[in-house]
Design a protein around this nucleic acid. Structure first.
Lengths: 344, 344
DNA sequence: CCATTCATTTAGATCGATCTAAGGTCAGTA
DNA sequence: TACTGACCTTAGATCGATCTAAATGAATGG
């Protein structure tokens, strides 16, 4: 054992050439075996694999990456792994790309620009095969010029950044706004409504709000600006804000919430309030799996996050110049009506 | 522009030697600048950085990794990014390791052994700096022998696998079981209790169940075996099972649930059941942020997932032979009493 | 029996960085 | 003048794979 070890407990690495020498073959042949090339004979293949196993050979990706100028790493750069919606989207991306042998990893920016910059830089320097980025909230166009120049195939997901010439995949915010307005006004006859919560910088909020407000106006219902102020998109923050507003006066009779998480907090505040508060119709967005379990069960506009992730994965494959099968259009949102809007 | 491009639109890579030649310096000097070495003069440093910027130089990590036999990649291999508890743990791990310049990424096994094997193999071949693994449920000891042999610094998290000689970090399951039993029997005077839900293979369940059951016996309360059967640890599955059991007869008067997610489903079933069902005390485990928002608000045994992640990160640093500051002992669990057990 | 084809194998260059051991400059000192 | 040490810079070997173009040997065909 002595000569096999050096520098303490560190084992001397076994390389392709060691496997080759041990069998009287060349590195090239061993390399072909490792890459499952059809060029080598079956006999050689089994001999090489057996010898590699016996010697404890471990393929060195760093060396291969250097030579081929390629890498199987695909980065999913997201601002919040705690958010069940984006977590679900990641499943779809992983499904599409993992199947083709890519090594899909998630990197968490925690919505911080400095971390986002560092992570994207790292992916560029590692010569990743591709990147899917849900931009941090405060991102500007020039945070992505480096990425663009590097030529690394990139897709922006969910949050659109004006002025960035990179492919974008997101939910159909216009449809979401319209669906929400229709459901609240036409189905439930709400006369005064608001869009509750979300960060003012988030592009989905801006677009939904616009479409929602227009559709509400067309239906002849009133717009409540106070209840439509931005609020951090967590259940706790939504609860606190809704409770404050309730203390100041009665709520609108219909609320489209920025996300199911926001709806949870709003529903709690309404339930603990006056009886007329409890009659306010609440509609979430995302339809998280938990929403059906809530009390009251939360009505929500479903956006099929997993399929959205698949679509995103396919668009990225297109960017990487690979053949793609399947839809590259985000799924159509639809209302899943439950108790919180008064449907059951 | 013509000579700068080749093969369609692909720009000829700029290398260190190009920067060096352009300034009449050697590669070595440029390399030192890129690594922020104190050996180079301030004048040379600024000149090199400016020229690198001008030429559009991008550092090649693959080449550096090959030469140094090192990599700043740390893999967090987990079975379910949708689980808010493990997502929160990941924040702690990332905090500790990210601060030291490691590139922390999350890889999702979806609790599948084949994907887990593939991901761990990939990390070994990439010569990652370290791995934190929450093993897939059906993992056996021999799924980790390859990892061990490779010498890649590894920490197992949350799920213990018998016979694996790798450092393990997890919540204090014995304390959780005891705390749960004490709260239900001593504080609320429950006479008949059960441990609800969780996968039979999950090591936390086995350990908690053991400790919980013993403490329950010592307190003189009865054990309900039917309500203690394993159930998939999702709110939906817990709801369905609890509803089934309720239809067959009255529930115990105290339930320790495998997780807050499970408690959500159980609480819903109890609330929709008979009045005596609603009086059953429910205690979750993990204390997710949402739990305070639930109706009824869910009492839970808090395990400080972020701090647990930090502890895990520190243990991994230790494995990598780096100096470590801070605690390497998991935080002590404590009961956060709310409405679901009858505290408010 | 030689030319041709096919299947398999290979030598040597190459990817782009870092490391080692040594070299050059220059000010201060004996 | 020669020596010393501090400071900065560098030539050449090296990491471990893949690629290109060519060699090898066996089988086939005329």
């Amino acid at each position: 054992m002595r000569e096999a070890r050096e520098r303490g407990d560190r084992v001397r690495r076994v390389r392709m050439i060691d496997v080759a020498n041990s069998l009287g073959l060349s590195r090239a042949t061993v390399s072909l075996v490792m890459r499952d090339s059809p060029l080598v004979s079956a006999a050689t293949r089994t001999a090489v694999l057996a010898e590699a196993e016996r010697l404890g050979y471990i393929y060195n990706q760093a060396a291969a990456n250097l030579r081929t100028q390629r890498n199987d790493l695909v980065g999913l750069v997201m601002p919040d792994v705690m958010n069940p919606f984006v977590a679900e989207v990641s499943l779809g991306v992983q499904e599409v790309l993992g199947e083709l042998g890519f090594f899909v990893v998630i990197a968490n920016t925690v919505d911080r620009l400095d971390l986002q910059r560092q992570i994207l830089q790292s992916l560029v320097e590692h010569r990743a095969a591709g990147v899917v980025s849900i931009p941090a909230l405060t991102s500007a166009a020039d945070h992505f010029t480096g990425l663009r120049r590097s030529g690394l195939p990139t897709v922006l997901l969910l949050r659109h950044i004006d002025g960035v010439e990179l492919p974008f995949v997101g939910t159909d915010e216009v449809a979401i706004g319209r669906l929400g307005a229709e459901h609240l006004t036409t189905v439930h006859g709400c006369r005064r409504v608001a869009y509750f919560g979300g960060d003012p910088l988030a592009s989905p909020r801006v677009r939904r709000l616009d479409s929602f407000r227009r559709a509400v106006g067309e239906a002849g219902a009133d717009w409540d600006a106070t209840w439509s102020e931005p609020v951090e998109a967590t259940a706790e923050a939504a609860y606190r804000r809704a409770a404050e507003l309730l203390a100041a006066g009665p709520p609108p009779d219909g609320l489209l919430c920025h996300s199911d998480n926001v709806a949870y907090g709003v529903a709690r505040a309404l339930r603990l309030g006056t009886p007329d508060a409890a009659s306010c119709a609440v509609l979430g967005i995302d339809d998280l799996r938990q929403s059906a379990m809530w009390n009251p069960s939360i009505s929500s506009i479903a956006t099929e996050p997993v399929e959205l992730g698949r679509v995103c994965g396919r668009v990225l494959l297109g960017e990487m110049g690979m053949p793609v099968e399947g839809s590259r259009t985000p799924p159509r949102p639809e209302v899943h009506a439950r108790a919180s809007c008064g449907c059951h």
